[in-house]
């Protein structure tokens, strides 16, 4: 296909965003981070599916500057899969038992509107050295 106008180029740009939106370019600024615990206990309770559901949901909602990162076990094996949401300037929020089906509500309410889904949070009382 030949590009015949600037609008056509911009449309191709839109369609191509998926190829690079995971990259960490320099001018992107602050990110909202969604950390999914991927220890053995997390994986066995479905963390991989949870993580992929977040990626899918974020794409569906066309959210920019949100990244989903897999991290190690945080020690709350009784509540796996665990998810931590870091919004710049806010205290981290921890969620427990986040199976695939709960992902959509966290994205819609917490990430988009800034309202924590209280029913799914867990209290983390440990300090990091």
């Amino acid at each position: 296909m030949k590009i015949k106008s600037l609008d056509q180029l911009k449309k191709i740009r839109e369609e191509s965003m998926g190829r690079v939106n995971l990259r960490h370019g320099e001018a992107k600024g602050d990110f909202i981070e969604i950390l999914v615990g991927m220890g053995t206990c997390g994986i066995s309770s479905g963390a991989r599916e949870t993580l992929n559901a977040f990626v899918k949901e974020i794409e569906k909602e066309k959210l920019e500057n949100v990244k989903v990162v897999s991290v190690g076990c945080i020690g709350y094996c009784h509540s796996e899969p665990t998810v931590q949401v870091n919004i710049p300037g806010h205290k981290p929020v921890f969620y427990g038992n986040i199976t695939e089906d709960k992902v959509s509500s966290i994205v819609k309410s917490h990430i988009i509107k800034g309202e924590v889904v209280k029913a799914s949070t867990i209290n983390i009382s440990h300090e990091r050295a």
Binding site: I3, S5, L6, L9, K10, I12, R13, S16, M17, R19, V20, N21, R23, G25
Partner: peptide
Amino acid sequence: GLINPEDIYEYIALGGYEALGK
């Protein structure tokens, strides 16, 4: 170190060829 240099769509996704269009 950010894009695949062999893929024009990655260049376009980061605003490539918009200067020429402009």
